[in-house]
Computed example of a mutant assay.
Amino acid sequence: MARWNLTDHTTGEPVSLAYDDEGEGPAVVQLHGLTSSRARDRLLGLDIIAGLTDHRLIHYDARGHGHSTGPRIPGAYAWPRLAEDLLDLLDHLIPDEPVHAVGKSMGVGTLLHAAVRRPERFSGLTLIIPPTAWASRVAQHDAYVRNADLIERRGLRHWSSLEKRLPLPPAVRPDRPFTLPDVAEDLLPTLYRGAAATDLPTVGELADLDLPTLILGWLDDPSHPLSTARTLHEVLPDSRLAIARTPADVATWPGRVADHVDAVAERGAAGVRGRR
C-alpha cells in the first residue's frame, strides 16, 4: 500500500489517499462505492478488474474511506471534490497517458465529474450500478440524512441491525456476507451528509462526453435505480447498457469489463495506426 498526500482544493484541509498500484501495461483504475474500500470490495467479490493481468491496476480508498483520511466537513465529500482527488492521483501516477476507469455507485459520480472536467484523462469508462441522480436524488438525500442522524443518536451497531433486514436486489447473491462500512464511526455521518448534498453532472454536460462507456445496472435497487442507468445510456453518445437480473448475470461482469477494456484499447490503437 502506498499513499498520496494532497490538499482539499476548497477547504485547504489535508487528505491522504491510500492506494495500490500493481502490474504492467495499459492502466485501469477502479473506484469503490460509498462506505466501501479496496478491502471491502475484495471481500464482497467486487474487485471487477482483478482478472486484467496484462494491465497496470490501480485501486484506491476514497477520502474518508478505508485507510484514506479526510476532513470532517460534509461538503468535502461532494462528488466534484472526489473527482479532484481522482484527477490529482492520476496526474501523480500516470501523467502522460489516458486511463480506463471503472467506478461503482459513488465511484460513478466521481468518474463522471472527473470525465466532464477533463475527458482527455480517460480512454474509456465503465459505470457499475449508477446511483440515484437528478429527480431520484431527492429521496436519497432524505435517506442519507436519516442515516447520519440515526448513527449519531443510536450508534453504528443499531444502524447496522436495521440495514441487515433490508431486502437485497435479486441479482445479489443471497449468501453474500454482511459487512460494516469501512469508515470510522465518528466520520460516517459526515460522509452521509456529504453524499446527500451531491448529484451527477447535468444531462447537458454528459451529452458532450464522447467516451466509450459500458454501463452495468441491476434490478430492484432503490439506491441504484435503472432510471439512472437508462438515462446515462440515452445521453452518453457512445455507450452500451447491460442489466443483471440474477447473480449469474453479475458473475459475467468481470468478463464484460475485460472485453470492454480490450475493445477500447483496440479502438485507440486503430486510431493511432490510422494517423500514421
Rank of each mutant, 00 (worst) to 15 (best):
Met1Arg: 11
Asn5Tyr: 03
Leu6Ile: 12
Ala18Lys: 00
Ala18Val: 00
Tyr19Trp: 09
Gly23His: 00
Val29Gly: 00
Asp41Met: 15
Ile48Cys: 07
Gly51Leu: 12
Leu52Ile: 04
Thr53Cys: 03
Tyr60Lys: 06
Asp61Gly: 05
Ala62Tyr: 00
Gly64Gln: 13
Ser68Asp: 01
Leu90Val: 00
Asp96Pro: 07
Lys104Thr: 13
Val108Thr: 04
Ala114Gln: 09
Arg118Gly: 01
Leu125Val: 06
Ile128Thr: 11
Pro130His: 06
Thr132Gln: 14
Trp134Lys: 08
Ala135Glu: 15
Ser136Lys: 12
Val138Gly: 07
Ala139Lys: 15
His141Trp: 12
His141Gln: 15
Tyr144Phe: 14
Asn147Val: 04
Arg153Met: 10
Ser160Arg: 07
Ala171Gln: 04
Arg173Phe: 11
Arg176Trp: 05
Pro181Leu: 09
Pro181Glu: 10
Pro181Ile: 06
Thr198Gly: 06
Pro201Glu: 02
Thr202Phe: 10
Val203Cys: 09
Gly204His: 12
Ala207Glu: 12
Asp208Pro: 01
Asp210Cys: 10
Pro212Lys: 02
Ile215Phe: 02
Leu216Cys: 07
Asp221Trp: 11
Asp221Ala: 14
Pro225Asn: 03
Ala229Asp: 11
Leu232Trp: 12
Leu232Phe: 13
His233Gln: 11
Glu234Asp: 14
Val235Ala: 05
Pro237Ser: 11
Ser239Asp: 08
Ala242Cys: 03
Ile243Ser: 08
Ala248Val: 13
Pro254Gly: 08
Pro254Cys: 05
Asp259Ile: 00
Val264Ala: 06
Arg267Asn: 10
Val272Ala: 15
Arg276Trp: 12
